[in-house]
Simulated assay, not measured.
Amino acid sequence: MNSLSLTEPVLLGGASLSWSAQRRWSWDFFAAMRNEHLELSDAAGNPSLEVRVSHYVQALQKGGNWRMSRLYAAGWRFFEQRPDMLRDFPEPITISQDRLQGIPERIFKPLLWVFIGAEGSGTALHHDVLNTHAWLTVIEGKKRLALHPPTPCDDDYDAQRKSARHVLATRRNRGAWRYLEVAKGDLLFIPATWWHEVVNEGPTIGLTRNFASPDIVGSVAARAREQGHLALLPWLEREMA
């Protein structure tokens, strides 16, 4: 991505199709993970169950465990158990463009995750952690999103979520709401503080990272201070100097 000033969603069709992850991270690849574990969340995003990756993927594929298959692997830090997987994709945003990647892992865990879920699973209306940007790509399946420019939704969250769900149901833009589909191999950039709700179409595997380009470091630092992540401030404020 050439510009670091991300103010609108950017969808790059087929941009990750050449990544090794697109060839290697098949359903069989994850179904063979018998030693790795991930945490599953319920529809409200609450942690619900920790399971082996193989058991969860097999439940999605075969439908034998109905309860497990209805839960969502929403944010698995895969690299903690499988660092080899980091070699399967290039970073769309370089380390020099992402001020978070310079923070030691002992202080701040990278905001890099795999999401795995069944048809209809997804993430309720939100904007991303610490007012960061995000990129995401789909490895298997399809993700559908309703996105809204930055606005104080907190006081009217239920009404805003109703609008987001309407956009997803109709698959059309509505007012300021944008509707986007991210298919296998597409790469989507979501600007900081843009609201978005995500639903998976079919069993889906996605990869995403949150990042802080130089132009938003001040906002990220302010959010970190508000939320009590004080250990991050020396690193972020150094980037602001």
Rank of each mutant, 00 (worst) to 15 (best):
W235C: 00
R225K: 15
W135L: 01
A183S: 15
I216A: 00
P150H: 05
P104E: 02
H126M: 08
S163T: 10
V138T: 09
W113M: 10
V138D: 01
A169Y: 07
E197K: 04
V217R: 05
R171K: 15
G228E: 08
E197P: 03
W177Y: 11
A192H: 12
P149V: 08
T132W: 11
V198C: 06
D186Y: 00
H166F: 14
R225M: 11
P203Y: 08
S163L: 15
L233S: 01
I116R: 05
G141S: 10
A221Y: 09
P150R: 02
I190Q: 03
L125Q: 07
L145A: 05
P152F: 03
L188Q: 02
S213T: 15
W177G: 11
N173G: 03
F115K: 07
C153W: 12
L100N: 06
R99A: 09
L187N: 06
W135A: 02
A212G: 02
L230M: 13
L233Y: 01
A221P: 03
T170E: 09
D154Q: 15
T137V: 00
R174H: 14
L232F: 04
I216H: 08
L100M: 11
V199F: 02
L111C: 08
V220Q: 10
S213L: 01
A159I: 01
L230A: 01
D158Y: 05
R178G: 01
V217H: 00
F115I: 06
R178Y: 10
V114A: 12
V198I: 14
A176S: 14
T170W: 00
R171C: 10
G120Q: 10
L145K: 02
L125D: 12
H133S: 12
R209I: 06
W195R: 06
R225H: 13
N131K: 11
G202V: 11
A192P: 03
A231V: 04
D98T: 12
T123G: 04
R178F: 12
Q160H: 15
N173D: 14
T132S: 14
A212Q: 05
E237L: 08
W135N: 07
H229W: 15
V198G: 10
P110G: 07
G102W: 09
L233F: 06
T151P: 03
Q97K: 11
E119S: 14
G175K: 13
S121P: 00
T137F: 04
S163F: 14
L232A: 10
R209Y: 02
A212M: 08
L230T: 12
D158M: 12
L111T: 00
R209W: 04
D158Q: 13
L232D: 07
D215R: 07
T132N: 09
T137P: 08
W113A: 01
A212T: 03
I190G: 03
A159G: 13
Y157M: 10
L168C: 07
R223A: 13
V167D: 12
A118E: 13
W135G: 06
L145C: 06
A134L: 05
A222M: 07
L111W: 07
W135Y: 13
D128Q: 07
N200V: 02
P150V: 11
W135C: 02
G102H: 11
L145W: 14
R99H: 14
Q160N: 15
A164C: 03
A146M: 04
F211K: 04
E197W: 07
T170D: 03
A146L: 06
L112D: 03
F211I: 01
T137D: 11
A183T: 09
V199Y: 08
S213D: 07
W235F: 15
E119M: 08
P191W: 11
